[in-house]
Amino acid sequence: MHSLSNIGDAFTLPAPAIDVETAQRLVHDHYGISGVVQRLTGERDQNFRIRSGQGHDYLLKISHPAEDRSMTEFQTQALLHIMRTDPTLPVPHVIETRDGESEKFLAIGGHAPRIVRLLSYLQGDLLPMVPRSSALRQHMAATLARLAIALRGFFHPAAGHDLPWDLKHAGDLRDLLAHIPDMRQRSLAERFLDGFEEHARPQLARLRAQVVHNDLNDYNVLVDPAHHDRVAGILDFGDMVHTALINDLAIASSYQLTDSSDPLGTVAEFVAAYHAVLPLEPMEIDVLFDLMATRLVSVVAIGGWRAQQHPENRDYILRNNAKSWARLERCGALPRAQARQTLRRACNME
């Protein structure tokens, strides 16, 4: 049984810091690349941008010492699989070392060995920085559907790992609700977890399952600076997992809710564009709204708890928290039957 009390050290303990000079030396020694190094934020990995000055930028990822080696291999092999099955998808490409390795296992600075990986650095504007449009929303949904299709035939022994962000484990979030001080917000979160237990959880084992990206939030999408209606990159494959396919769409859809008289209108448009590329099944659509709300509960519950554990990384961890509460409030104002009908209609299943 998955339990949040069993979350590994990679989530709960800070990693020994790697300085910029060390990162620069690693890239030069093992990849033959020189350039200006810039530290980036990250939840578990330590990340650095390498500007080579030759028209190519790279992303150096140094894993948490407590991260299971099979987990980083899972992510690397998934990216290599995507490069083979749909090479035009805008995802990071794996850069091999001078020795032809896709990963390097190194002891750095006298600490425990860690996995070092180098990826291509995707250029673009973060989604929150650009105006939203119908065309962009539809292209984002279509790209996510293509990504799911590209991963359809992929599996790895670590794909079934226990992940707090996997929606099938959402029932375990109840222990974290005690950390929500606002009783009205806590009640709202409990209401949607009840809905998950009643409507979604019993169905998940009957739905299509595969490896999915599992985290298409606003900060994991890059937009083409010259064409704001096109996705230029999908980032962060660190939360990949083998789970119900519809969970992937539910996560992405939860970020499409708008503060308007028709908050599900943009979600319906997003779902319809996904459905046009990767047709959904009626049972999947019928639990989509429940899973969207469950994702938002996950963000506020896990995010709030982790921010207490890691105050030094609080701003990064809570970057989606306020918006998630606002979106959860909008879901709370929608009757479930009405939401289900709206989403079925979007896929011409009414």
Rank of each mutant, 00 (worst) to 15 (best):
Y255W: 01
A232W: 02
Y219L: 04
A250K: 04
H242E: 15
G233H: 00
H228L: 14
D239H: 09
V241P: 13
Q256N: 02
N220W: 15
D239W: 08
A252Q: 02
A252R: 03
L235W: 01
V231F: 12
A244S: 15
I251D: 12
G233Q: 04
F237Y: 14
T243K: 08
M240L: 13
Y255P: 02
I234S: 06
F237W: 12
A226K: 15
I246F: 11
Q256V: 00
N220I: 14
D248T: 10
D248M: 04
L257N: 00
I234Y: 10
S254R: 05
V221H: 14
A250W: 02
D229G: 15
R230I: 11
N220M: 06
S253E: 03
A244E: 12
A226H: 13
D218C: 14
G233T: 03
I251P: 03
A250F: 06
I251R: 07
D236R: 01
Q256A: 01
A226M: 11
D239G: 08
N220V: 09
F237D: 11
A250Y: 03
D224C: 11
V223E: 06
H228P: 05
A226C: 09
L249I: 12
A232F: 03
D248A: 10
A252G: 14
N247Q: 15
R230Q: 13
V223N: 05
P225G: 10
N247V: 08
D218Q: 13
L245C: 11
D248E: 14
R230W: 10
S253P: 00
A232N: 01
L245G: 04
I246N: 06
G233S: 08
G233I: 04
S254H: 04
G233N: 02
D229Q: 15
A226P: 01
R230P: 05
A244N: 07
